[in-house]
């Protein structure tokens, strides 16, 4: 089962690299923030899988939760900043 979790986390990190393409190429900067948000989503799953590998899941859950919250707030703040009038 550990090998399965290891391959799963490798696949998730490959998917992160895949969605990095849009961050590099993306014509508008909103594309870039979307791909960074997508990478953030995958990082939450990756963190928990690593927690399973290290057999210390209860520590990694807090890290994943904080990461999810910060990723969400970052996206919101970018949305507010990106709009000229600053009204959400």
């Amino acid at each position: 089962m550990d090998n399965f979790i290891l391959t799963a986390s490798i696949i998730v990190s490959l998917i992160c690299i895949l969605s990095l393409y849009r961050a590099v190429v993306g014509p508008t900067d909103v594309d870039r923030i979307i791909s960074v948000g997508a990478i953030g989503t995958k990082t939450v799953v990756l963190l928990l899988l690593i927690g399973l590998i290290y057999k210390r899941l209860d520590m990694f859950i807090d890290i994943a939760l904080c990461y999810a919250i910060i990723n969400f707030i970052g996206t919101l703040i970018f949305a507010k900043y990106f709009m000229r009038k600053g009204v959400l």
Partner: peptide
């Protein structure tokens, strides 16, 4: 959280 963030981004992208 994710739909809210996507909505905020979509709205600000459309407004600008």
């Amino acid at each position: 959280a994710n739909p809210t963030a996507t909505h905020a981004i979509a709205r600000s992208a459309y407004e600008s």
